[in-house]
Amino acid sequence: MDFKVDSKVEEDSLILSLFGELDVYSTPKFKEEVKSAYEENKLNIILDCKNLEYMDSTGLGSLIYLLKIVNEDNKKISIKNLSKQILKLFKITKLDEIFEIMVD
């Protein structure tokens, strides 16, 4: 599956739904699309990873890139619907302490 980002505004949040694989190949597209969406709507971000199949260290780096941008505006990033494998990656790298991981 090709990587894709859908964005929409709900209440006071920018919802970014991720589809496919966030890896070394898709990271440039991710950075460009999410930065553009955020510039249009400088709101707190919720990353919906329900349809995210895979993430590598480059993908994690792109989330940190996004975090730096939103932190400049005193906004935050929350992440929901992480698969067990990707959540494990967040825990190993201790990024679960930096990002708010939403659990249903």
Rank of each mutant, 00 (worst) to 15 (best):
T27A: 10
E32T: 15
D104P: 11
G20D: 05
E10D: 15
N74D: 15
F19D: 03
K88D: 14
I64W: 14
I79W: 01
N41Y: 06
K84I: 08
V34W: 01
S62M: 05
K80N: 04
I69E: 01
V34N: 04
E21M: 04
E72F: 04
K4A: 05
S78T: 10
L47R: 00
D104K: 14
L82C: 03
G61R: 09
T58S: 11
P28M: 06
D73C: 11
I92G: 03
L89C: 11
C49D: 05
L47I: 10
I45M: 07
E21F: 02
I101M: 06
K35T: 14
V70E: 09
F30N: 07
V24I: 13
E33N: 08
I98R: 15
I69F: 00
Y65K: 06
F3Y: 08
S26M: 13
I15N: 00
E97W: 07
V24E: 01
S7R: 08
I64Q: 13
E11Q: 15
E53I: 02
K88R: 15
L18D: 02
K84A: 07
M1H: 14
L82N: 01
S26W: 01
K75I: 11
S7G: 08
L47V: 07
Y25R: 08
V34T: 10
L22H: 06
S7C: 14
M102Q: 14
I46K: 11
K35R: 14
K94N: 10
Y38N: 03
I92T: 12
N74S: 15
E100F: 10
K76L: 00
I77M: 02
N74H: 15
A37S: 15
Y65N: 12
D6A: 09
P28R: 13
N44V: 02
I15Y: 04
S17K: 03
L18E: 01
I77K: 00
T93L: 10
G20Y: 00
S17T: 10
S78I: 02
I77E: 01
I86W: 00
F90Y: 09
T58N: 04
D96S: 10
T93I: 08
S57G: 03
K84M: 06
S26Q: 10
T93P: 03
N81T: 08
A37Y: 08
D2T: 09
